[in-house]
């Protein structure tokens, strides 16, 4: 009985994903043309390419991930090195869980009010970067902590037995041992950043022009798709094409994570 349900479910799942993929490819292809990736959008995005959007996306996501890693990695290191079962660290746990669990739209609202409004950064790539970094930081910290804690405790003890200091142990042995998982976490965060629209819609804005400074507004690919679908009349076809590109990018990132993790996520 369970076996039958399981088999049906597996086939349904396969069918669904294949259908979605084919639908994306077919409808997306209708708007795809030679030079699509190298032309600026025209007619409010309904025609032309997505070159400027790709630039904004790369700029926002890369800088946001870098900024978030800059804060998250030291935080995760402090956590794994000094963590004790104290009230402070239990509170830290709860805070992290809230950070990871908070809906993206909440981060979007937060960033929109704080950075765009209060700090007066306006709808700008800078506002987008900071907001996205805030959203990614808890995800990164959690992932980094898991990666660091997964390293063999015997490795640390061995280094201490050889007379190494805590920091030199960390820097020379623990971090290299944890590197694949740290990289996978960063790539995962990059994927989240690329796919996110909610946090950026009200911070980085929806401009489709080529950004010339961090104070310009610039739409990422996901925001562009969202904007085409919801605001621009007759933008559906163009939305499909852009979404197909986004889909391919996300798949590529997914595969990078799988490759970084070695054999893949599923145990055989």
């Amino acid at each position: 009985m369970i076996k039958t349900i399981g088999q049906i479910s597996v086939w349904l799942l396969i069918g669904l994903v294949v259908w979605m993929g084919v639908d994306m490819a077919v409808r997306g292809a209708s708007g795809f043309h030679f030079g699509y990736l190298f032309e600026a959008p025209a007619d409010m995005g309904r025609s032309g390419g997505i070159a400027t959007i790709l630039v904004s996306t790369a700029l926002i996501v890369t800088l946001a991930v870098v900024l978030a890693v800059l804060f998250s990695l030291p935080a995760a290191i402090i956590y794994t090195e000094f963590q004790r079962d104290t009230r402070f660290w239990r509170l830290m746990h709860i805070i992290l869980d809230i950070g990871v669990g908070a809906p993206r739209i909440v981060w979007g609202l937060f960033g929109g009010v704080l950075f765009v409004g209060y700090f007066n950064l306006g709808f700008s790539i800078l506002s987008g970067i900071i907001t996205l970094a805030c959203l990614l930081a808890p995800i990164l910290v959690t992932g980094f902590i898991v990666g660091l804690q997964a390293t063999d405790p015997a490795l640390r003890k061995q280094c201490v037995a050889l007379g190494l200091t805590r920091w030199s142990t960390l820097w020379n042995q623990v971090l290299p041992a944890a590197r694949p998982s740290l990289i996978a976490t960063a790539v995962l965060a990059t994927g989240r950043g690329c796919g996110d629209a909610a946090a950026l819609l009200f911070t980085a804005g929806v401009a489709t022009t080529l950004p010339t400074s961090l104070y310009d507004s610039g739409a990422t690919l996901a925001v562009f798709v969202f904007h085409l679908l919801t605001v621009i009349p007759g933008g559906q076809t163009a939305a499909y094409t852009a979404a197909a590109v986004l889909f391919v990018i996300m798949l590529a990132i997914q595969w990078m994570i799988t490759a970084a993790n070695g054999k893949g996520r599923f145990a055989h």
């Binding site: 063999d152 015997a154 490795l155 003890k157 061995q158 280094c159 201490v160 037995a161 050889l162 007379g163 190494l164 200091t165 805590r166 042995q173 290299p176 041992a177």
Partner: peptide, 21 residues
């Protein structure tokens, strides 16, 4: 006395030594 300072005076080969990277 720091633990690493002590370990420089007293060496220790554990029962199951761990190879480093």
């Amino acid at each position: 006395l720091g633990r690493h300072q002590l370990a420089r005076q007293i060496g220790y080969i554990p029962q199951r030594p761990r190879m480093l990277h």
